[in-house]
Design a protein around this nucleic acid. Structure first.
Lengths: 238, 238
DNA sequence: TGGCCCCGGAATGTCAGACAATCAAAAGAC
DNA sequence: GTCTTTTGATTGTCTGACATTCCGGGGCCA
């Protein structure tokens, strides 16, 4: 049975600078955050079963609240719900990992086009700001912090495009990204490669050369996915 | 205060053929369906306020269950949640309507590429099946049935692509599509135009000519959105 | 021995009722 | 007339309970 910490503690010890205006997450959001982080950390692994009463005791939160959090995560796709049988941490087939990559590629390029089309350069400025934020954390010793910085960077790109629909689709995307990375720890623990790839990304973006950008995103997204898939399939055969 | 019917009744009187294997939706799903349909019917209009206790009484379902349904719809984007202040039916700015159209266009073409790439023609067969289903209902006298057929058709296209990520993104897409159409009743009540546009779509798809398909989707999605926006802006000025 | 049916445990799905936290606007004080 | 207080409304959360559904084990019968 995976062990989780109560959410009240973890909500306060966020290593981020005091950027949050102090909205002190609701209990439900704390639980959501705690579960997401547990997946990133590897405390919860794809396939693990979660029960409401169990989490309720472990996290010291009532069952209805836990339930709402689980429903939210299931809707995002981080958990899968089997009616009357419980919830499990989602796991992805290789084909699904490629689906995610292709879809992200399409949406990333949609964001890129919006960013490049911008008149006053406001959107590109937003990109640079979120890149600056990313670079502050990209080499953090804590893998969780690196992951959250990575996620925030890509979300920031979509936000910079000022396309409201992309932001609405982000939670689903983030959930699947998280699962894909959690699926194989080896990938997640290669910060150097991630760093290089992201530098290429931002360089390409600043060149404003669409083809170059597309290639950089392909390396980042599609190639990584293929690599991950081959690792997983190799492990299955072993 | 908009009037809604209890979900138990509406769940049973679906005019669809008995295709459902009899999963008899859970109460929560019944509430979700009822609220969605209320928006499509115009019983609930963008900006309308919903309260938990009120719905609980109207629909004869307990508050926790109502709450779960409302959370789900808020996550999809059909409702917007103002903390401690209640929920309202979402309403869209013109720029958001265009964002939705652009995003759908990108994802539709992603689906199209997958369908065209298919080796055995299985995916194109799936397209034809969902087109057949659509044509059975496209001229139904009930606008709700037409809307659900329309939605099912587009969902079917994404499903035919066999891209799992697209299916996960569908609920968000459907919610926004619903709001956009609910925003102006005039658009929804032009079944002839919708029919023509969809015939063009399917013709283009069967030609397998990617450029032709892209143009057809542009007419369907982008042009419709522009039209809707100009109607809304015209109404604002009046 | 082997297959079918029934039953109990376990978990979710749903309900009722209550209290605390929060926000908005009305009521009151200066 | 403006600021402060109060109050009402609504959500956020909790406790406890019951109904529903699924899985697997034990008993019955051939």
């Amino acid at each position: 049975m995976p062990q989780l910490s109560p959410p009240a503690a973890s909500a306060a010890d966020t290593p981020r600078p005091p950027l949050s205006p102090a909205p002190v997450l609701s209990r439900r959001d704390s639980v959501v955050q705690e579960l997401r982080r547990a997946v990133v950390r590897g405390t919860l692994r794809p396939g693990d079963k979660l029960t409401e009463v169990n989490l309720s005791e472990t996290l010291a939160v009532s069952r209805p609240t836990i339930r709402e959090a689980l429903n939210q995560l299931a809707q995002e796709g981080l958990l899968v719900q089997e009616p009357y049988r419980g919830l499990r941490v989602a796991s992805l087939e290789p084909s699904q990992i490629l689906d995610i990559a292709r879809t992200r590629q399409a949406l990333d390029m949609l964001a890129v086009d919006a960013i490049l089309e911008d008149d006053g350069g406001r959107r590109m400025t937003a990109v640079q700001e979120c890149w600056a934020e990313y670079s502050r954390w990209e080499n953090d010793p804590d893998p969780l912090t690196r992951h959250e910085a990575h996620v925030a960077f890509h979300r920031g790109l979509w936000a910079a495009s000022e396309n409201s629909m992309l932001l609405r689709m982000w939670p689903v995307t983030e959930a699947h990204l998280t699962i894909a990375l959690a699926q194989d720890q080896a990938i997640r623990s290669d910060p150097a490669r991630a760093s290089v790839v992201h530098h290429h990304l931002i360089d390409a973006l600043q060149s404003r050369d669409r083809d170059l950008i597309e290639k950089a995103f392909t390396v980042h997204t599609i190639d990584s996915a293929r690599e991950l898939v081959s690792i997983i399939e190799g492990k299955d055969n072993a």
